[in-house]
Design a protein around this nucleic acid. Structure first.
Lengths: 230, 230
DNA sequence: AAAAATTAGAGGGAAAACCCTCGGTTAAAA
DNA sequence: TTTTAACCGAGGGTTTTCCCTCTAATTTTT
């Protein structure tokens, strides 16, 4: 059997223009072959199931509609543990990085990185199984792996509260939705504030938005603010 | 003089990997020549000032550190009115679109568009001065131009309030920062709610974040939530 | 099985945010 | 110029949120 000199990659990102461009860019750099691209995690998984040849490395965006990067990586690691992964994301948040390391990401790259870094990342991951941008990141990675840096655990109720948090609903309305009492919501909120070292509902709302516990419909809020219906 | 068959473009986007990839992609499509790229508006303008030849079309991202797409376009239209512009943004918000049309953008394209659309957009803008993705967008564009769709006016005080809105500061603290009283803040908030058809401070906070009236430091909130210092 | 920790929820009081009305000022329009 | 309209801020009352304490249930450790 002849050794394939090419690293085969797949890439899931909802920004088609960005996705196609990046794939075309890295293919032009040579040594890399882009076989599969998808708009979100679910699409990617479907394609992998029917693929003649699984990719060596999967590149994943975090924010995607339908199935996001976290869920997708979780599924991939469970179904095809040997496939390597590179997270490609737009914003710098240790929360995301830690979460991804815990799930088992093999590399993590920001979209504002030096363009040449992506080829190196893919090659390093393919060869050694890991990619660090620098020594500091490697140090951080090791600490997370050793359990020295942990994400606070967020319970089901708390997640549900976070979902309603960046909303114009009052606690009594949220209580109805969550089938509980105002007092329960207040407790939920107080505990979250404590474990996240965040002060007040607005802070929690920002947290929820930034880290994907809640989404806001940009398009809708835009229309409301302009005064168009719906 | 020989006619230059190539459309010269410049592109400002803080995501270097995305920027380089997209420029490389469109150059490969042919007929387009990428001369200048920058991390933000200020960098772009500096480069344009010393450029031997100004580009035909400038592509702009909206969210950029330092100088964002709005400020940049405003400056460009005032200094070099003949340069055409194409806004390239990740998220769909009529608010942004209207603002850009008002400033004088020649085209507006989402990053999740069909990759081929970008070449067409650049060519159409270069030739005719405008690009619409479809008839609906053209219709919308005309309505904005005719003043049939307007953005509510936001006063200085209101903008300042919006800046502090997605914050854990209480109104009394904000009042100190803004050198005014709690009552003034409350009035400010009530008027904003009315003109934006938004209910409550949290809603306004979401609005402020989404439309660039305030920024949150993702990195900082992430560290706080994990419990690391700073 | 006892002890400790985690999670959930209630009470009550203090503080902050919200709502409605109104007067005064400035700026634009008739 | 008179009228309109937008902007800013105050008063006062209501609702919501926040904070502190305490109890109960469940889970984990020892």
């Amino acid at each position: 059997m002849i050794k394939d000199p090419c690293i085969h990659v797949a890439y899931a990102d909802d920004h088609a223009l960005v996705r196609t461009s990046i794939l075309s860019y890295i293919q032009n750099l040579g040594g890399i072959c882009a076989d599969i691209e998808a708009n979100n995690g679910l699409e990617l998984i479907k394609q992998l199931e029917y693929a003649a040849k699984l990719p060596d490395v999967v590149m994943l965006d975090i924010n995607m509609p339908g199935m996001d990067g976290f869920e997708t990586l979780q599924y991939l690691k469970q179904k095809w543990p040997h496939i390597k992964s590179l997270i490609l994301t737009a914003f710098e948040a240790e929360w995301h990085l830690i979460k991804m390391i815990n799930i088992g990401a093999n590399g993590y790259l920001l979209k504002n990185c030096n363009p040449r870094a992506i080829k190196q990342a893919l090659e390093t991951i393919h060869e050694f199984g890991f990619y660090y941008a620098d020594a500091a990141e490697e140090h951080f990675y090791n600490k997370v792996q050793d359990g020295k840096i942990k994400l606070p655990h967020i319970s089901e109720k708390e997640m549900e509260y976070l979902k309603y948090c960046p909303t114009d609903m009052s606690y009594s309305q949220i209580a109805v939705q969550m089938n509980t009492t105002v007092k329960a919501i207040e407790g939920c909120m107080a505990r979250l504030c404590e474990k996240l070292h965040i002060k007040g509902r607005i802070g929690l709302a920002m947290f929820a938005i930034q880290f994907g516990y809640s989404k806001i419909d940009t398009k809708a809020i835009s229309k409301i603010a302009i005064g168009l219906k719906k």
